[in-house]
């Protein structure tokens, strides 16, 4: 078989051929992912729903992620307060720390940090589980037993992630703001009552809603990337490991990319 990446004349690599193949490969992959996502979303939005599976997944994805989400949020809130204080100090605007912390956490960081942490914890876990099921023929077994993997495996994970992510983001918002408050009150000599009053006065329902809408989208990204890569997993420990890595990297990048797109959209529509 001839190697298409070398030119006919001298055997040097053909960069144009390489770029062309990479581009076609990328578009084909995007196409496959879109078709797959459509099937998952279609199965998730039409009855019958497998409530037992959805509940199990909500516990696995939501409840067991609480510690990691809480810990990340408290540190992000604390670091944010410290940095805003340092920056604000340069032009006498330290008093805006509570306002900017609550805005930053609710609109941006609460959702993004939750999305990124779950891209690690949940996406990789789903990919490894589905990948192991594929490799041990359990997905084929499901099909022979008349259970559609989209309904039985993928849709419950998708629904559970979309439903629990907003709840986790609410928790992250509260704990993130608390992180900022802790640093401001105990490290930067803010008055606790004033800090909390400024936070509550400044915070709007729209800010919180922006974070929660992002959370639903991140939930979809996290579940779909895990299921998709898992279902493509190749045999062996390396295959499953690779599926987990790919899913995690893909989900993290997509969380950040969709976050930017949604932020732009929300700013443009004045939300």
């Amino acid at each position: 078989m001839s190697d298409a990446s070398t030119s006919k004349s001298g055997g040097f690599p053909n960069p144009l051929g390489w770029i062309g193949r990479a581009a076609i490969g990328l578009f084909a992959e995007i196409g496959r992912l879109i078709i797959y996502s459509g099937k998952v979303i279609g199965s998730a939005l039409s009855p019958p729903w497998n409530l037992t599976q959805i509940w199990k997944q909500m516990i696995a994805i939501g409840f067991y992620s609480l510690p990691v989400v809480g810990l990340s949020a408290v540190f992000i809130g604390a670091a944010l307060a410290l940095n805003i204080y340092t920056g604000g100090n340069r032009f006498g605007a330290e008093q805006f720390v509570p306002n900017i912390v609550v805005l930053g956490i609710t609109r941006e960081l609460g959702a993004t940090i939750t999305g990124l942490m779950l891209a690690g914890r949940v996406t990789a876990g789903i990919a490894a589980e589905i990948g192991a099921m594929k490799v041990t023929e359990q997905i084929d077994a499901l099909k022979t037993l008349s259970a559609n993997p989209f309904r039985y495996l993928y849709a419950p994970r998708f629904l559970a992630a979309c439903l629990t992510l907003p709840l986790l983001v609410l928790v992250a918002d509260i704990i993130g703001v608390m992180g900022g408050w802790l640093v401001s009150v105990y490290g930067l000599d803010f008055d606790s009552t004033t800090y909390l009053r400024n936070t509550i006065d400044f915070m709007t329902t729209e800010d919180v809603m922006v974070g929660l809408i992002k959370a639903v989208v991140f939930g979809a990204v996290i579940a779909i990337m895990g299921c998709y890569q898992g279902s493509l997993s190749k045999a062996g420990a390396t295959g499953v490991g690779r599926a987990a890595t790919l899913s995690m990297v893909g989900a993290a990048v997509l969380v950040l990319a969709t976050n930017y797109i949604m932020s732009t959209l929300f700013v443009n529509i004045g939300l």
Binding site: M133, A141, K143
Partner: peptide, 18 residues
């Protein structure tokens, strides 16, 4: 599905759901 309802399959690895 109608066809599969009339078929049984024993997989090489057993393929039991963990």
């Amino acid at each position: 599905e109608a066809m599969r309802a009339r078929i049984g399959m024993l997989f090489q690895s057993g393929a039991l759901f963990d």
